[in-house]
Design a protein around this nucleic acid. Structure first.
Lengths: 172, 172
DNA sequence: TTAATTTTGGTTGTGCGCAATTCAATTGTG
DNA sequence: CACAATTGAATTGCGCACAACCAAAATTAA
């Protein structure tokens, strides 16, 4: 079932179960708005926790990656976080200015920035260790619900990336 | 079940099913990161559709509200969209500059801005009417899944707003 | 009625997010 | 080797998000 061409089936569903224009343009019916608002609220909720680490949420994400694996470059980091160099370069400079990260150069390829933690950056992991639990309390809900949320978000991201590469008829 | 003090139960779950610090700080395990990435991808996917209307996604959200109901003020709009005046004021000025929206003043209360559509703003609704369907195709997935996604996002937003008002022990 | 408080919106400053562009380093090809 | 194409990162410019702060108007209290 789920292996058939999804878009075609979706189209047919939208045609058979056709909602009026007013219904479709109604804010209350918009999944994307719920996703957008929940994501904003999530970043907002992280703020007081991350203020104690002097990190923003995107900076925290970069630190999560570097606590797992050092010596990676900006491209790899961007692939993991789904962010590009226009976002990461200034962010990494800020982390460097705070003394948490070093931005070296690869010897094999002079273009490549090699990212690593300073001792202070590594130490910050201890302070960060309580953040997930505190955030978990704020979010609430059943573990199974959150697992389902993660699964649908991951699936949606994947699908959106796929439809970004193979665009609409107007491009042909 | 769902009416009991949620945080307490969540705490106990976190204690009994305790994950290691490394597991908790692992990017792969972070629901919030999935939510954040999916929301970013969603805004990105809207962009080519909304470019045809010369709107950004937040601007589109404001237009959705105004297509439903005119004559509202900035506060009410912000309550509906979960955005504050720092975000909305410049955004509304841009919509005004595009000739889509008027920012009048209430006669009863000189502070309140009364937002309304220009004829061009109202007409844009016709052009926007195909956006939901096109976006629905990009997102893919079963209708039931998206309904579930919306429900969990709405619930999460509500919970995060609640825990923002009644903060942690460190504030006492 | 004055004084204190609340409400509404605006301003400023910081940090993303991303499209578009640029640039230098590397790789591929004849 | 020359030279075109590719790649990794940086830069520029715009539009959010939001905290912090401010001013004016309205409401309430004294």
């Amino acid at each position: 079932m789920t292996t058939t061409q999804s878009n075609v089936r979706v189209n047919s569903v939208d045609i058979t179960k056709h909602a009026s224009t007013d219904d479709a343009l109604c804010l209350e019916n918009q999944v994307c708005f719920s996703l957008y608002s929940a994501a904003n609220a999530m970043v907002r909720a992280y703020r007081p926790l991350l203020d104690k680490l002097d990190l923003t949420y995107p900076q925290y994400l970069v630190m999560l990656v570097l606590w797992e694996e050092q010596g990676i470059n900006v491209k790899t980091l961007g692939d993991k976080l789904f962010l590009d160099s226009g976002t990461l370069t200034p962010l990494l400079k800020r982390l460097e200015a705070k003394g948490l990260v070093t931005r070296g150069r690869s010897e094999q390829d002079e273009r490549v920035r090699v990212l690593a933690l300073t001792p202070a950056g590594f130490t910050l992991k201890t302070l960060a260790s309580e953040v997930p639990h505190l955030m978990r309390c704020k979010v609430g809900g059943e573990a199974s619900e959150l697992k389902a949320l993660k699964a649908i978000c991951d699936q949606t991201l994947k699908q959106l990336q796929a439809s970004a590469d193979a665009p609409t008829a107007s491009d042909i």
